[in-house]
Structure formats: structure tokens, C-alpha cells
Design a protein around this nucleic acid. Structure first.
Lengths: 239, 239
DNA sequence: TCCCGGAGAATCCTATAGGATATTGGCACC
DNA sequence: GGTGCCAATATCCTATAGGATTCTCCGGGA
């Protein structure tokens, strides 16, 4: 979290964020670390005390987080951490993601030239973070679950996919992808295969790039399909 | 708003709603009526005074509404009504919707038997509300934009599609559809063709039902594709 | 032993107050 | 006449207080 690669291509104006945005990020990190037991209740006041702020911004952050599905609200009762993804929900998530990303690839193909550099940069960062995780894994034994480098690796992986989805030039597709993003991250660390998945994921990403470069319009779709099938297989075998 | 057809199939327990939920509905209605000029600013305090509540629940309702895209927030500056959908965004919306709904139909086909009754019920309500709008249109001349019967017609139309999407048995697909719903409604009243669209929409819905009943696995997809193409054509010719 | 009811605590929800920030209008100055 | 600066206002954002609701626990009765 040293850098903020949030690509606001508009102006360089870094408009100040309100406190509730910071609380949102904090709670998000807390949830994605996997330390909070799923199903447990999230008390507004507890979070407020823990973060050293008043309940008001915490409430708003939770309202904003509700639509992601990471927390569920019951009126007058409070918020609870979303239960873990069962096998069915995992399959549904992978199915929905596949549908979305294949459609995105189809729409991105005509603009290959314009986004291919970005894709290569994202891939480079992915390779780099993978290398870092691998190194860390060899030095120390099994790292803790919510390791910072691992989180960064996840982000780089997802960013690779986001570049393609952005290239589809459809803000609603992008919106759908972002609404799925939290669940995808949760799935990855739920079945914590992420560590063993490194080489295959990188290789498959490379094949996707190669497919875009081939000039064949159908190749990228197939490459992405193959990649997501691999992700699905590796995810479900763990469960 | 005499009845609440919110189909919570779970239990009959009508858990009391908090005030902020009511405010959300009120603001939503206000926005979907088309009376609020797009791009204008939404003052928290003004809304609070207008609704007779304190700013606190209004703030939370707006936070919840932000992710729908109907309002846009700038930190420390406030909320604004989303600008109207330009031709490009309309095309993107229809494209995304088509992708989503075709995928949903594919996945719903195996469960045709179980949801076909619901679909017929939804269609009946659609026909009914269409009839009501047509009557009203013949009696009085051109009704005002945010007419109650028209709103109900829109809801019935969308509910028909939702039945199919629910039958796909993928909560993430459903989640995506709901995130699109507000924009679909806005598009309909933006290009206020809705009034002249009645017969064709009803007829195409009937063809979709017939396709599901035919037993041919591909027919429903084609029927839906044809319907959505018609919607797109009728929407874009208005703009 | 099991079930029921009520007191207390914890939590949520709304209202209000005050500090912080952005916007607007006017005035001096070039 | 145009431009920049400064005060005044409006608005947002956060903190705190109090009412309303739900949960917990414990004791009495069947």
C-alpha cells in the first residue's frame, strides 16, 4: 500500500478524502486479511473505538460496504461479516466471472494496439510481485495468511484482468467487474491456494498477451477461457 | 405505492425498516420521476428539511445510492444528480445488458419447468399494467412524465426479466442485474419512448415464453436476443 | 428438568452542535 | 475594464447525546 495506482486519468488534483473513506479502506483491509471470522457480528461502536473515530463515519463506511456483499446488514440489528463462500457460491462466482471476462475480451480485441502496452506493464508488475512472494516463501517458511506481499500479488493479478476489462470501453462492464472484485479476493484467500498458483497464473497470463499479439481475433478469448478454467479447477480442487 | 410487492420469499416476518431505508426510497422516487434536473446538486440539508428528518439518515441513504450511479459524490463538495445518459453510454448499457441477459437465459433453460409459472404471472402483470397505461393514455392526453401507472408498467416489465435472471441461479448475475436496474429505468424515461413501446414489448415477451415452452434449448436465447435488439433499436432511434 | 418473563446491558438509530471546507460576493488594485 | 484577494455564507463532515430496540442472563414457576 505504498503506492496508489488508482488511475484517475483526469486531472492531477488529488482531492482530499473524507474520514469515512479512510475508515472504509481500513475495514476492507481488515476483512480481506481473513483475520475476522466470517459470520461474526461487526459492532459499530467497537469499530469506532478500535479505529479511534466516532461511530458516524463508521456507519457510513459500512453502508457503502454493504453492496459489495462482504458484510450483510439487518435493520436495527447490525452488520455481520459475510459467511464464507460455499462450493456452490464459488462455482457461481467463477461462472459469472468467466462470462464477464470473456465478453470483455471480445470487446477489447479491436483496441488491442492501444492497451497492449498497459497490459504488458501490468504483467511485469505481476511477475515482479510473484517473484517477491516466491523469494519470501523460500526464506521464511509458510508466511501468515494476510501477508502484505501476497496481498500485493493478488492486486497485481487482478489489475492485469482489469486492464483488459477497461479496454472493453464499457463502463457498466467495468462496474460489474468491480462489484465482483471483493468476492474474487475473498475466494482466493478462502481457498489459500494462491501460493502454489504462482507459476501457472503467470504463464497463462503470458499466453493471453501472446494471443492478443497474434492478430487472431478468437485466440485471446480462448486463452482467457483456458486461464479462467484453470483458475476454477485449482480453486475448486482445494475445496 | 399502496402495495409492497417486494418478494421476500423467506419468512413472513416483516422486519421493521429503519428511517434511512424510507429516505432511500423517497430519494429514489424523486430521481426516477425525472423531475430533478440532471447535474444539479443535491444538498443534504435541503433534502433533510424537505423530508422532515435530520441530515444523518439522509447522508446514509445517499451513500447507499452512490453505488447505483444515480448520484455522484465528490468528497467535501457534496452529491450531484447523475448527468443524463449520452448516446455512447446508452449503447454501452444496452450492450452490457444484452450480454448479461443472454447468459442468464442460457443458464435458466435447464430449470424451465420450475420458473415458467412465475414467468407467466409476471407476464400477466405486465400485460395488465400495459393495458392500464393504454387506457389512461386514451382518456387523458399525454400523461405527465413520472406517471404512477407508467412507473408500475416499467417495474412489471423489468420484473419479467428479473424472473429469468433469478432462474439462472447465480446470485452474482443477479447482483449485476440489480446494479444495472437503476440505469435501465433511467434510460427508459430518458428516451420516453416507453409509451409507444407497449405492444411490441408485450409481444416479444410472449415470444420469449413461447420459446421456453418449445423445448428447444436455443430458442429462448434467440428470442431474448431479438427482444433486446428491438429494445436497443427503439431506444436509440429516439436519441 | 424445562420453560417463561423481566431487569439490565449492549447496540443501533436519529437528532443536534460545532469545527472544517468550499463557494460566493464585493472591493481594492493593476 | 479585468484580475486577485478577502470576508461572509452555505454546505459538508465529525463528534456527542439520548431515545428505541434487541440481546443476555437470571430467577421463578410448572
Amino acid at each position: 500500500m505504498t503506492t496508489k495506482p488508482n488511475a484517475r486519468a483526469a486531472a492531477g488534483s488529488v482531492d482530499r478524502r473524507a474520514l469515512r473513506d479512510g475508515v472504509y479502506d481500513a475495514v476492507l483491509e481488515m476483512l480481506l486479511d481473513g483475520t475476522t471470522p466470517p459470520g461474526s457480528s461487526l459492532s459499530i461502536d467497537s469499530l469506532a473505538r478500535e479505529l479511534g473515530v466516532s461511530p458516524t463515519p463508521v456507519r457510513e463506511a459500512l453502508v457503502q460496504m454493504e453492496h459489495t456483499g462482504l458484510v450483510s446488514r439487518t435493520a436495527l440489528k447490525g452488520y455481520r461479516v459475510a459467511p464464507p463462500l460455499g462450493p456452490e457460491q464459488m462455482a457461481e462466482l467463477l461462472d459469472a466471472r468467466t462470462m464477464l471476462e470473456l465478453a470483455a475480451v471480445e470487446r477489447a480485441v479491436p483496441h488491442t494496439e492501444s492497451f497492449l502496452p498497459d497490459l504488458k506493464i501490468a504483467h511485469a508488475e505481476h511477475v515482479l510481485s510473484a517473484h517477491r512472494v516466491r523469494r519470501r516463501q523460500q526464506q521464511h517458511g509458510q508466511p501468515p495468511k494476510g501477508y502484505a506481499d501476497l496481498r500485493e500479488y493478488f492486486n497485481a493479478d487482478w489489475e492485469f484482468h482489469l486492464v483488459i476489462i477497461r479496454a472493453a470501453r464499457n463502463r457498466f462492464l467495468l462496474q460489474m467487474a468491480e462489484s465482483l472484485s471483493a468476492h474474487v479476493h475473498r475466494l482466493r484467500q478462502s481457498a489459500d491456494l494462491g501460493v502454489y498458483d504462482l507459476d501457472q497464473a503467470v504463464a497463462e497470463h503470458a499466453e493471453i498477451i501472446a494471443a492478443f499479439e497474434s492478430g487472431d481475433d478468437l485466440a485471446p478469448v480462448e486463452a482467457m477461457r483456458s486461464h479462467l478454467a484453470g483458475v476454477a479447477e485449482r480453486s475448486l480442487e482445494q475445496a
